[in-house]
Design a protein around this nucleic acid. Structure first.
Lengths: 202, 202
DNA sequence: GCGGGCCAATGACATTTGTCATGGACAATA
DNA sequence: TATTGTCCATGACAAATGTCATTGGCCCGC
């Protein structure tokens, strides 16, 4: 019996996925979390074999949680990322953080069970289309500060507002934004922010 | 036995929700759709009592599908909207379109089953917090053209790009954008587009 | 020790954006 | 028939944005 932990911020999604996975004879969801917070303790406490983590969660995201699990258990506990958006940067960061699998919620249900068994057996379960896209996208060319100002730009903030948010002068922010616009091959900060987000670079 | 139809674009979410709902003795998911397309035929063909619809779907969204069902069946078939974002405008448009229920995916699992029974019995199932927010937000003050240019602005497009997309002159687009910025009490088109989206006005 | 990249900042300049006024067409309402 | 609101367009203007050059500090690799 493969013991599973599920982390997803949406109540109904967790409950539904738990119901689905519990239908399999060899799978059992032994714990659920609404966030990445406390994932290491929960895995230890419930003797979890495979942790299934969403990425976008309020406090601790799935990639950070993956790092925590990797540091605490090595490959003794397998991590499978299950996310809404199959963004290249997400896949890269997830695998770098120590995940053994990466799936999108748009995949067929049978693929989820198969992926769980694969990572439990020490294998890797990543959709080949996503892997190819990740390779062609390449790693993020953005510096830390470029990423900071783009994150702030996501809300449609003005240069002045972004400057206040990251505690830099407006001129410095414009320089970082201009550089990020060039790297994302866009024409303004909103477009740059969105492109970076879609590529999973934010 | 209450016969259910589920429409959601994500495979795993549909499968999980189906598994969850089928655990209830009096509920049975008799059909699933990945989109609002063909929902009327599917409801007729499978003798569906309650249709559970996501809003954001590729071809036909859940609100449009609700209108189609309301036109075809009146209150003979109940509609329960189940969405990721509890946006005020979504709730307003859903109820106006003829939905009997509105829930977010963040709700507890028991609430979903209870809501299904409520709408099946002819009642209304709307979270009171969402209802209050919808009332305080008010209906969208945006004109059709303002909405059009804001939708185009969501991608971070320049005025020139937006003008090309909606087939108007750049000056006209700037006027519509300026008006929309005023109505959303923001300071630029990206912020206006995002605010309108969050309120469910787009 | 030197070169390169990142980071921070200032300043100049061209372009874009947002506001506002104005005018006209059209449809709906009083 | 007159008024109002939406839509379209142009033009003027101020403010914001994005680009670019320049300077300096710090860190890292060669």
């Amino acid at each position: 019996m493969i013991r599973l932990l599920l982390a997803d911020d949406q109540h109904l999604i967790r409950a539904g996925l738990a119901a689905l996975l519990n239908l399999e004879e060899d799978l059992e969801v032994v714990h659920q979390l609404p966030d990445g917070t406390g994932v290491v303790d929960a895995v230890r406490e419930h003797g979890v074999d495979v942790a299934i983590l969403d990425i976008e969660m309020p406090q601790v995201d799935g990639i950070t949680a993956t790092q925590h699990l990797s540091e605490a258990f090595g490959t003794e506990v397998a991590v499978l990322i299950l996310t809404t958006f199959g963004r290249a940067g997400y896949l890269q960061r997830a695998m770098t953080a120590g995940a053994q699998g990466f799936m999108v919620k748009d995949a067929p249900a049978e693929q989820l069970a198969a992926a769980i068994r694969t990572v439990h057996d020490g294998g890797t379960a990543v959709d080949s289309t996503l892997a190819a896209e990740a390779l062609s996208t390449g790693t993020s060319p953005l510096t830390d500060r470029e990423r900071d100002v783009l994150k702030a730009a996501l809300t449609g903030a003005s240069v002045k507002d972004i400057a206040a948010a990251v505690h830099l002068s407006a001129g410095t922010v414009r320089n970082h934004l201009s550089s990020a616009i060039g790297k994302t091959q866009t024409s303004n900060r909103s477009e740059a922010a969105r492109t970076a987000q879609l590529k999973g670079w934010l």
